[in-house]
Amino acid sequence: MSHPIHQANENNPYGDLTREEFYQKHRIIHQESFMLNKRNMKIFTQSWRLAPGPDDEKGMSLSMRGVVAMVHGYALDSTWLFELTAVAIAKCGFLVCALDLQGHGLSDGFPGHIPNIKHVIEDCIQYFDSMRHENPKLPAFLYGESLGGSIALLISLNQKNEWNGLILNGAMLGVSPKFKPAGAWLLPMAAFLAPTWKVASVKPHASKLYKEEWKRKLSANNPNRRTSRKPTTATALQFLRLCKYIRLRCHELEVPMLIVHGEDDRVCDCSSARFVYESAASRNKTFKSFPGVAHMLIGETQENVDLVFGTIFAWLRDRS
């Protein structure tokens, strides 16, 4: 199946269509709302599913394969480019759900500020559990990109035996040495004294994130984007601790797992992804690395996008 990114242009992920026309063309039912989390923050949530056809009953597609809970990456959100993948998965017959992490998109919070990763995981579990409980007979899968991959991994560790599969797309399982902040040893003190200061890090050129220039422009045009890629001191400290924690506990993973990663990823270390794959106790696990592919896999050429996401779609269909 072709990914909807191929119909986009540098100004609009929906091509020449409005968002509503885009959903109608792809026969997608889209719903969005806000959830109040345990810290009284408003968290934006949304879902996508294929509209029922003439042979379906009670408004639910008879071909519904499962639930896919998606987690976006840092400095991004659950709309724009990310929702194109959500629509593609929904067209495969899945109920797809996602939320904007705190400080991202339409959710409450200081822009890009994640002082405690545990709170983000709690938000995800709260929303994803509500979606799974509404569809108890469907198998459920976690999907995460970049930072969202590490969050999805921690959710699966916190909810062992509750998920039927885990997909990690360019996941932040280890930070590339070229992207670590300068003076990382000072982060604990800096995070304590000035938690919202921006970290001076080696910022990768946009071409190292998105290989195709028009997709870089499209990403920059996201109206819901609220922050640059430079994290706050508290957030950067959480990232480094998160990667260390994953390295220590990834051997406990037992969930069926697919890891896809670009070998030319200058942000999230590909070797760390391989380490997680080799360490995981999962009996059903697959690791696919792609030569010459950068961090944002959706930012690649059409050929590479079809290769990477074709692998993801096939994996989901085979396990639903």
Score class of each variant (00 low, 15 high):
residue 238 Q to Y: 11
residue 239 F to N: 04
residue 239 F to D: 07
residue 239 F to I: 14
residue 239 F to R: 10
residue 239 F to V: 13
residue 240 L to H: 12
residue 240 L to P: 07
residue 241 R to W: 09
residue 241 R to Y: 11
residue 242 L to G: 11
residue 242 L to C: 14
residue 242 L to V: 06
residue 243 C to K: 06
residue 244 K to E: 15
residue 244 K to Q: 14
residue 245 Y to P: 06
residue 245 Y to T: 12
residue 246 I to A: 11
residue 246 I to L: 13
residue 247 R to G: 15
residue 247 R to C: 10
residue 247 R to Q: 14
residue 248 L to Q: 15
residue 248 L to N: 14
residue 248 L to K: 14
residue 249 R to E: 07
residue 249 R to I: 05
residue 249 R to T: 15
residue 249 R to S: 13
residue 249 R to L: 03
residue 249 R to C: 08
residue 249 R to Y: 11
residue 251 H to S: 14
residue 251 H to Q: 12
residue 252 E to R: 11
residue 253 L to V: 07
residue 254 E to G: 15
residue 255 V to S: 06
residue 255 V to W: 03
residue 255 V to T: 14
residue 256 P to H: 10
residue 256 P to Y: 00
residue 256 P to N: 10
residue 258 L to R: 01
residue 259 I to W: 01
residue 259 I to E: 07
residue 260 V to L: 10
residue 260 V to E: 08
residue 260 V to I: 13
residue 261 H to N: 10
residue 261 H to D: 03
residue 261 H to K: 02
residue 262 G to R: 03
residue 263 E to P: 00
residue 263 E to I: 00
residue 264 D to A: 15
residue 264 D to R: 09
residue 265 D to S: 10
residue 265 D to Q: 06
residue 265 D to H: 05
residue 266 R to C: 02
residue 266 R to Y: 09
residue 267 V to R: 02
residue 267 V to S: 04
residue 268 C to Q: 07
residue 268 C to D: 12
residue 268 C to I: 01
residue 268 C to W: 02
residue 269 D to H: 06
residue 269 D to R: 08
residue 270 C to W: 01
residue 271 S to Y: 02
residue 272 S to Y: 01
residue 273 A to R: 04
residue 274 R to Y: 02
residue 275 F to C: 04
residue 275 F to W: 04
residue 275 F to L: 09
residue 276 V to D: 03
residue 276 V to L: 12
residue 276 V to C: 11
residue 276 V to S: 06
residue 277 Y to R: 01
residue 277 Y to K: 00
residue 277 Y to G: 06
residue 277 Y to L: 06
residue 277 Y to A: 02
residue 278 E to N: 07
residue 279 S to R: 13
residue 280 A to T: 10
residue 280 A to K: 03
residue 280 A to P: 04
residue 280 A to C: 12
residue 282 S to C: 08
residue 282 S to G: 09
residue 283 R to N: 14
residue 283 R to M: 15
residue 283 R to I: 12
residue 283 R to A: 14
residue 283 R to S: 14
residue 285 K to P: 05
residue 285 K to L: 11
residue 285 K to R: 15
residue 286 T to L: 13
residue 287 F to R: 08
residue 287 F to C: 12
residue 289 S to K: 07
residue 289 S to N: 04
residue 290 F to D: 07
residue 290 F to A: 05
residue 291 P to C: 01
residue 291 P to Y: 07
residue 292 G to N: 05
residue 293 V to E: 05
residue 293 V to G: 00
residue 295 H to D: 07
residue 295 H to K: 08
residue 295 H to L: 09
residue 296 M to P: 01
residue 296 M to S: 03
residue 296 M to A: 08
residue 296 M to T: 01
residue 297 L to G: 08
residue 297 L to Q: 06
residue 297 L to R: 06
residue 297 L to F: 02
